[in-house]
């Protein structure tokens, strides 16, 4: 078994890494909002689900690909991938902002505490999932393949596949942009200020509603990118995938320490690799068990997650 594992180590690792980066991006949707509002935005999983549909609509309906189409190449391919990525990010970003305005803002203004927005979040996620279920006739929907899944090289014995490579590189670029935004820009500073002490930030003249909207927008953009990468890698979706992926990303956020970007990063990577290795070693049926045993062990020793910080510290 160990020998087999070493044989397959690098190909499992590449698969696990690209899955991990998808988790990271969704986890950011949870963690950004939590950092600012101390609230779990459970509707984020459905934002992700709708982003996967946005990608498919672009590829299938705008660029008219079918399951028997020729693969796109060269400039056209990058144009298609670029449009689909931007569209999913925009759809998800705007949807997140709308969800905040419709479902949370009024509750927050009325100081409803933390439970009412939680129920409101679950309600929104049900409405979104059911709406898509009705529109998609409860059927799984596949994305036609626009890009050939070619091998671009070998690393030790493992084939390096184009889609996994694109996911890893693009996700890293997005993360660098996100860190630059949060650390270097005025808006980013405002987000951090609200996250550290909302009342003080308000007294300094920061527009809290504006900052909250921007946070939802940024979290949504990241989750939307995850939707695009998911379709690029797995080429299918359904109204019900939000739950599964959402729980996984939420677990990743908790594992790493919710509320900070570093936590989402390491939590997502750890989860992606852990799931993949565990499925190989113990069988896929043990994947979830392994993940949660590890989660409990980590929380047992570090209750705030791997990189959890005290509430008052910076969240970037």
């Amino acid at each position: 078994m160990i020998g087999n594992f070493l044989d397959q180590f690098w190909s499992l690792t590449f698969g696990g890494l690209s899955l991990g980066f998808i988790y990271i991006l969704i986890a950011l949707g949870y963690t950004m909002v939590y950092g600012v509002l101390r609230m779990i935005n459970f509707a984020n999983s459905e934002v992700f689900m709708i982003a996967t549909f946005a990608t498919i609509i672009i590829v299938r309906d705008v660029y008219k690909f079918t399951q028997t189409s020729e693969y796109a190449t060269g400039f056209r391919l990058w144009l298609i991938l670029g449009t689909a990525l931007l569209a999913s990010m925009l759809v998800a970003g705007v949807l997140s902002v709308l969800i905040e305005i419709v479902a949370y803002r009024r509750l927050r203004r009325m100081n409803s505490g933390i439970l009412a927005p939680l129920i409101s979040a679950i309600g929104v996620s049900m409405v979104l999932a059911e709406s898509v279920r009705i529109m998609s006739d409860s059927r799984p929907v596949a994305s036609p393949r626009a890009m050939e899944k070619s091998f671009i090289g070998k690393f030790f014995d493992a084939d390096i596949r184009l889609d996994n490579t694109i996911i890893i590189i693009a996700a890293i670029i997005l993360l660098i942009l996100l860190l630059a935004f949060v650390n270097k820009t005025r808006l980013g500073k405002a987000i951090r200020a609200v996250s550290m002490n909302g009342n003080a930030a308000k007294l300094m003249g920061i527009n809290i509603d504006g900052v909250v909207s921007i946070t939802f927008l940024v979290g949504g953009l990241m989750t939307g990118a995850a939707g695009f990468f998911y379709v690029l890698k797995y080429e299918n979706t359904s109204f019900s995938i939000g739950f599964e992926l959402g729980i996984a990303a939420f677990t990743a956020a908790i594992l790493g320490g919710i509320g900070n970007i570093k936590g989402a990063f390491y939590g997502g990577l750890a989860l992606g690799l852990l799931e993949t290795y565990a499925s190989f070693f113990l069988g896929t049926q043990w994947k979830a068990v392994t993940v949660f045993v590890v989660l409990v062990l980590i929380l047992y020793t570090k209750p705030n997650g791997l990189f959890g910080e005290a509430m008052t510290q910076t969240r970037a």
Binding site: G15, Y277, G283
Partner: peptide
């Protein structure tokens, strides 16, 4: 043999096996 939940989306472990 492998037994994989019908909720699984990532099959890389099974593929490796």
């Amino acid at each position: 043999f492998d037994s994989v939940s019908d909720k699984t989306t990532d099959w890389s472990a099974t593929v490796s096996k």
